[in-house]
């Protein structure tokens, strides 16, 4: 299964990932990305891929476990 790694020190709170994958990502009180679904289901991965692609600062890294 793929896994998600968040480089949150780069996050600029664009919220682009939340618009793409609201069931997986949210913003915390400081506007920094947080993963709210620890194990996305297979049908959620296309949205996770789109979220990773659209992030303007490449915070979301998708790797293999």
């Amino acid at each position: 299964m793929p896994c998600i790694r968040l480089h949150t020190d780069y996050c600029i709170a664009s919220g682009a990932c939340v618009l793409e994958a609201p069931e997986v990502f949210s913003l915390d009180d400081d506007g920094i990305v947080a993963q709210i679904e620890p194990e996305p289901a297979s049908e959620q991965w296309p949205a996770v891929q789109r979220a990773a692609a659209v992030c303007p600062v490449a915070v979301i890294e998708i790797g293999e476990e």
Binding site: G15, V18, L19, P22, D28, D29, D30, G31
Partner: peptide, 15 residues
């Protein structure tokens, strides 16, 4: 204005 989280529900309406 320092309100990234509070904006999100409204941003969805703008799609």
């Amino acid at each position: 204005w320092n309100a990234a989280k509070a904006m999100m529900p409204l941003r969805r309406e703008l799609k």
